[in-house]
Design a protein around this nucleic acid. Structure first.
Length: 494
RNA sequence: GGCGCUAUCGUCUAGGGGUUAGGACGUGAGAUUCUCAAUCUUAAAACCCGGGUUCGAUUCCCGGUAGCGCUACCA
């Protein structure tokens, strides 16, 4: 018999138990993260258990997708189980409950009661006649091969009250009389979610069940199962749900890929940013900290910081990502050492058809890190560094404000001369180009625009000198000459 | 229908019997800068409604309303 005091002090064992019926979605990811944080904060054990008892809906692809998502998050776990490999235990446990008289066979054909027995008046509690079937008749019909579901015999008329203290929602009570005789075994002999989940939680000695609030009312059934199993119930902590802007629970069917973890990954979220964002949905460190590295989150994480109201993930049709998630991602990108950022950027460049050398990416990364919010933005922000030939651009952009084509031409001519004889380092370029601007009687901004557009192919780009250093003299001179040609063509057409 | 949970700026949240109700994202304005970003300053923006308790409620209690969840031989 475990001593409640010592078990409180013992290292917690938590589990994440997804059912593989689709891709890993953000709500599940957050549940995983909260479990992980609790385990790691308290030096406990993290268990991953695939709740795959619903053979109809489980797919291999889904299992792969879940692992893929979890691997990307980069959070580890200590033990791994598959519910489908534990069916014997589930059935034996069901039999034990039945042997104690805490369950009974229900021979009502499946789906015979699933009309709207609940919508009329009051809740459905059990199928007539079945609960009170004599043991002899029950045995006889079972022996005759008649299919049955095994139902829990919920205490009736004893005024017994089920109660537990949720770490988030506090004291919860419910009269047993209001709980229906839920199924433990389906008529095909497969365990239901409730049974399998509780049997495994008991067997794996899970100490804290941290899961979505949609299970809050199911917990009373689970309490009954634990009791039937002769096991002490674990601590419960229910998490507020993640909902869409319309208030509806995030769903794969209704909201599509925006709820899939891989969508964030593919767009170029950093896992630590994604985790940071998800943590702030339904939990607060209560010290006004928002941008936090994983270590700090783990340090600060407690169940007391979890709140009770559902949290909206603020996406729209136009923008699938919550602006705060995007901002956090930008913050994390800026916090990354250049080498790491470069490594993270590489696959995005590759996917776009560029094959820059690592050194080149490391040279470019510092120039774009403050200009991108998602890793994939880097492709558009830095393409001109990797392209042999600049994409077509409007030659009119070469002409600075308050200037004309001939002014632009003069600037480019001067730049050509100056650059031919200047060292390609930041300070030399700075000095040379600024004094050239002064000689032309132009402000820096005016003088640099034609050069920037010539060299980058657009008006908005990273700082000019750094950019030119990375590009190198040959490329710069070549692109400026091409710009002059465009300018000439523009003049000829006019 | 029954049962349950929840309710602070547009969103995420802090707070709590007496506060200028705090922070962040986003939005507006300005500063800075070679453009864009980044950065800095700044503005607008909230306690669901009604009763109670109280000298005083946004905070505590009750009711309403709304949203969500559960009410399956899904998980």
């Amino acid at each position: 018999m475990p001593d409640p005091n010592s078990s409180r002090a013992a290292a917690p064992r938590v589990r994440f138990a997804p059912s593989p019926t689709g891709f890993l979605h953000v709500g599940s990811a957050r549940t995983f993260i909260f479990n992980w944080l609790y385990a790691r904060h308290n030096h406990g054990t993290m268990v991953l258990r695939l709740d795959d008892t619903d053979v109809e809906r489980n797919t291999d692809a889904s299992v792969q997708s879940i692992f893929e998502g979890l691997r990307w998050l980069g959070l580890d776990w200590d033990e791994e189980y598959k519910q489908s490999e534990r069916l014997d235990l589930h059935r034996r446990s069901a039999e034990a409950v039945f042997a104690k008289g805490l369950a009974y066979r229900d021979f009502t054909p499946a789906h015979a009661t699933d009309d709207d027995h609940s919508s009329s008046q009051g809740a459905w509690l059990c199928n007539p006649g079945m609960r009170d079937l004599s043991r002899e008749e029950s045995d006889r019909r079972a022996a005759a091969g008649e299919p049955f579901a095994l139902r829990y015999r919920v205490p009736r008329g004893e005024h017994s009250v089920l109660r537990f203290t949720d770490a988030v929602y506090g004291q919860q009570t419910k009269p047993a009389d209001e709980v229906e005789d839920f199924a433990l075994l389906r008529s095909d002999g497969m365990p239901t979610y409730h049974l399998a989940s509780c049997v495994d939680d008991a067997d794996l000695r899970i100490s804290h069940i941290i899961r979505g609030q949609d299970h809050l009312t199911n917990t009373f059934k689970h309490l009954l199962i634990f009791e039937g199993l002769g096991a002490a119930p674990p601590q419960f902590a229910h998490l507020p749900l993640l909902v869409a802007p319309d208030g509806a629970k995030l769903s794969k069917r209704k909201h599509g890929p925006v709820v899939s973890v891989t969508t964030y990954r593919d767009a170029g979220f950093l896992p630590q940013a994604f985790i940071n964002f998800l943590c702030l949905l339904g939990w607060s460190p209560k010290n006004d900290r928002e941008f936090m590295p994983l270590d700090e989150i783990r340090e600060l994480f407690t169940l007391e910081g979890v709140n009770r109201a559902n949290a909206v993930v603020n996406f729209t049709d136009a923008d699938p990502f919550d602006p705060k998630a995007v901002w956090l991602n930008a913050e994390h990108i800026r916090a990354l050492p250049v080498e790491e950022l470069s490594r993270d950027l590489e696959p995005f460049f590759t996917a776009a058809g560029f094959t820059p050398k690592p050194e080149k990416i490391e040279a470019v990364a510092p120039l774009i890190r403050e200009r991108i919010k998602l890793l994939r933005d880097a492709v558009a922000a830095a393409d001109f560094f990797f392209l042999d030939q600049l994409p077509a651009y409007d030659p009119a952009e070469l002409i600075p404000k308050n200037g004309d084509a001939s002014l632009a031409h003069r600037v480019l001519e001067t730049a050509l001369e100056v650059l031919a004889g200047t060292n390609f380092d930041h300070d030399s370029l700075d000095q040379a180009l600024r004094s050239a601007a002064t000689q032309l009687g132009l402000k820096a901004g005016q003088a640099f625009q034609p050069i920037r557009v010539a060299v980058c192919g657009r008006k908005n780009a990273p700082p000019l000198f750094e950019t030119m250093v990375v590009l190198g003299r040959d490329v710069c001179l070549d692109r400026i000459r091409q710009a002059e040609a465009k300018l000439a063509a523009l003049g000829a057409n006019a």
